[in-house]
């Protein structure tokens, strides 16, 4: 870890100004940043500690939505009764991620900006265009099991690892960003992350000094909330594929569908093709499978991660079925009676 200057911010405005002036990096929970600094993957010269800023409250907003201070911990957000009642998919996503120890530290703002878990990003010395622009993508012709299948480029196939952000995207969250000039501007969460294109090192459009200060959830969409996370072990693992769904069905017809995916794309992926296919459609297993198929149509695997395409299809259909309260119609193969 290279040496860095450390200072604690007194206010969000002061933090943003200081970071804009010095190019400092914010540290909140540090659960991702300290990990990457130890490996030399991230090498900030200066840290501005925003972990003690007062923007950690969660409050009702006038429009029936919720205002969440970006310094709130994942634990606080997941357990908030209003989140639990009205934005349940967000609580489910948060509790599916990491562990209590990490959720106690990790903040909302930090979680939105967490970096990929691509093993080439982590292994300093091997090629990675995100960590060392121009060095190449190690994963594309290497081990790609964790990599994305949607929205990738020839320069980078790394997947975004967050659970929380997937739910936030499904819920149309808006981010209040404090700029170095002291102004607060608003940004759709879906517009925060960039696709890699030819600049995978640029993951978002925030300028130095831009501090995510608050997150607004608009009034919740109608329907049942379900979060599915498919992973290699039962807990404490990043998603192979995750699906956030808020689905409303009336008289057998889908009246509102919000769907977002994790683990399959360089950013939390709003599944607009699924939503378009479903709205107004009959809530049947067949319709759910067809909608999932439409979302994954442009997907491309890289060998190891080819499985994510059928897995994502199944997970989307299964999650929609759970939300709609219908049974998946899955062939059980050569299953036999007990001899």
């Amino acid at each position: 870890m290279r040496p860095f200057g450390y200072e604690r911010a007194e206010s969000a405005v002061a933090a943003a100004r200081r970071a804009a002036d010095t190019g400092a990096t914010f540290i909140g929970g540090g659960t991702n940043l300290v990990d990457l600094m130890k490996l030399g993957v991230m090498t900030p010269e200066r840290l501005v500690d925003v972990s003690r800023l007062p923007n950690r409250d969660i409050a009702d907003a006038d429009d029936g939505g919720l205002a969440i201070g970006a310094a709130a911990t994942n634990t606080a957000l997941a357990n908030d009764p209003r989140v639990r009642e009205r934005f349940r998919v967000l609580s489910l996503a948060l509790l599916s991620g990491a562990t209590p120890q990490i959720r106690n530290k990790a903040t909302v703002g930090g979680n939105l900006l967490q970096r990929t878990r691509c093993p080439y990003f982590y292994e300093v010395g091997l090629p990675c265009n995100k960590r060392a622009p121009g060095s190449g993508c190690g994963a594309r012709f290497g081990r790609s099991r964790d990599a994305a299948v949607l929205g990738t480029s020839e320069h980078c196939i790394a997947a975004h690892p967050s659970d929380m952000a997937v739910a936030m995207v499904a819920l149309d969250a808006r981010l209040g960003v404090r700029g170095g000039d002291g102004d607060l501007r608003w940004l759709d969460v879906d517009a925060l992350h960039r696709l890699p294109g030819d600049r995978p090192d640029r993951e978002h459009d925030l300028a130095p000094g831009d501090l995510i200060e608050t997150v607004r959830l608009p009034p919740p969409p109608p329907g049942r909330h379900v979060y599915t996370k498919v992973r290699d072990r039962a807990s404490y693992a990043f998603a192979l594929v995750s699906v956030a769904v808020v689905l409303a069905v009336e008289d057998g017809v889908v009246t509102s569908a919000r769907v977002a995916l994790g683990g399959v794309a360089p950013k939390p992926w709003r599944a607009r093709a699924v939503e378009a296919a479903l709205t107004g459609a009959r809530a049947t297993w067949r319709a759910f499978c067809a909608a999932a198929e439409a979302e994954l149509a442009p997907a491309r695997g890289h060998g190891d991660n080819d499985f994510k395409i059928p897995l994502a299809r199944r997970a989307i259909a299964g999650t929609l079925a759970e939300a709609a309260g219908i049974a998946p119609e899955v062939p059980t193969g050569g299953r036999r009676a007990t001899p």
Binding site: R117, P119, Y120, Y122, E123, L126, G138, F141, G142, R143, R145, D146, D232, R233, A234, S235, Y236, A237, F238, D304
Partner: peptide, 25 residues
């Protein structure tokens, strides 16, 4: 373990990538 066959490196070389069973498993 997932081997990068070009350099002989196991890529999931940490406990987030190499999955020991947890209590929940």
């Amino acid at each position: 373990l997932h081997l990068d066959e070009r350099v002989g490196a196991y890529m999931n070389r940490d406990l987030a990538g190499y999955h020991l069973p947890t209590e929940r498993d």
